[in-house]
Amino acid sequence: MKKSKTGMRILILAILFIAVVGAIYNTAFTDKQAIKEGAKAPDFVLPELRGGTIQLSDLKGKGVVLNFWGSWCPPCVEEMPALNRAYHKYQDDGVEIIGINISESKVAVSSFVQRLNLDFPILLDQKREITNLYEIDPIPTTFFIDKDGIIQKIVIGGPMSDQTIQRYITQIMPE
């Protein structure tokens, strides 16, 4: 009789304990972000400024640098030339540099790209759907995605220097 009571107590206490620890852990300690380093980069498709569309999964096998930017954000503007240089430098090494403009009109983006002489592809996320999907808060935010589509590095803020860009690109460069 006594044994079974104690066993019952242990069971009840164990269930409660697990529930409580789980709940506390969930509320106070977990970050609820699905987008983080080591996670798979969600697939998407967006129109490219100069025509056509680009789908992320089509770039499998290549390293991808995703740069979320807006023309109103000074550090974004500042790091554009460095990204453009990286684009030319690593074009043949299987690394794609892709800019994703947040919510601006084609005309505004187009004139901006012309002024800065940018050559790498710029995708237009006019409805911020991909921006929301990637949980972008401050910009610029840059994702370095390896050939398997895994996010290796997230750089929040900027501007990034050539060295910074280079360092993370080497991490995602396919052999």
Binding site: V77, I102, E104, S105, A108, R115
Partner: peptide
Amino acid sequence: QILEYYQDFEWTEDNQPRTKSP
């Protein structure tokens, strides 16, 4: 032809046009 567009226009300190918000 619409060549350039700035949604929230201002001049920068070195007299370049820019937009300060989307």
